[in-house]
């Protein structure tokens, strides 16, 4: 346990925690776009700026990848931080001024337009790489990565082909802060990153369970029997009721 202050309030943290998670856990409001508590911090969006004072010297830094240190004092908002966040927001916004998620964040920070004109590619991707990290670190599929350099940098599957390691779990699309990872799903198939998966259905009622690849991956990772992955929650709950009834009333009627 170590102790430091955030906006004058004394807080405690574990060794190895970053400033952002400590601040969020204590109810401080810090804007972020590229942070997700389940994966490593990457420091891409620069919105989580705070001012850290250590041994009399202060500096502005991103809080998501700055360690909690004993004795420091952290300020989450002042004029300088606000000004810098607004500048960063303008830079991010020029990536795609029409993106609703970016507009919402801009609104929240008091930015109504971007003075920059930058038209290379307005696809809403802010290159935060959260999709890549969740895919690699949490799901363990490692299907996408950054490709290209400079203004050509983007996220893609190897050679832009349908990826063999993609399991079609949609975690990337779910965490994308600008919600620009496209996927489609109909009754029998799901398509993402140009790959189409045939969906597995509940063996009782036919409700969609997921893709065969994701079910196999999760089964392999947990070591659970395949029978854990073949029935939907609604049918299972009914089966549980039947099993409880048998325990309660034995062999008598139902």
């Amino acid at each position: 346990m170590l102790t430091f202050t955030i906006d004058g309030q004394t807080v405690q943290a574990e060794e190895g925690q970053n400033l952002l998670e400590v601040a969020l856990a204590h109810g401080f409001d810090i804007p972020t776009l590229c942070y997700h508590p389940s994966v490593s911090a990457y420091g891409a969006c620069r919105l989580c700026l705070v001012e850290v004072t250590q041994r009399g010297r202060s500096r502005i830094t991103t809080s998501c990848n700055y360690p909690a240190l004993p004795g420091i004092s952290v300020v989450t908002r002042n004029d300088r931080i606000d000004r810098l966040r607004r500048l960063v927001m303008e830079l991010i916004l020029c990536r795609d001024p029409g993106n609703p998620q970016l507009q919402a964040m801009a609104d929240r920070l008091g930015v109504d337009r971007t003075r920059l004109r930058f038209a290379s590619r307005q696809d809403g991707c802010i290159l935060c790489g959260l999709c890549e990290r969740i895919c690699r670190e949490s799901i363990g599929a490692d299907a996408i990565s950054f490709v290209g350099r400079g203004h050509e940098r983007r996220l893609a599957t190897p050679f832009d082909e349908p990826s063999e390691s993609c399991v079609g779990c949609l975690a990337c699309a779910m965490v994308c802060p600008t919600q620009v990872i496209e996927f489609t799903q109909d009754a029998d198939t799901r398509t993402i990153w140009k790959r189409t998966f045939t969906l597995v259905k509940c063996k009782e009622c036919g409700a969609v369970l997921g893709t065969p690849e994701e079910l196999a991956l999760f089964q392999r990772k947990t070591g659970l029997d395949a029978s854990y992955f073949d029935t939907c929650d609604a049918c299972r709950k009914k089966q549980t009721a039947t099993a409880f009834a048998a325990v309660t009333w034995g062999g008598q009627r139902p």
């Binding site: 508590p37 389940s38 975690a171 854990y228 939907c232 929650d233 299972r236 009914k238 089966q239």
Partner: peptide
């Protein structure tokens, strides 16, 4: 804040309680 709605928990629970 952590959940990515992959729904694997809903499939894996043997009692259908999530």
């Amino acid at each position: 804040t952590r959940c990515v709605k992959c729904m694997m928990c809903t499939v894996a629970c043997p009692f259908g309680n999530i």
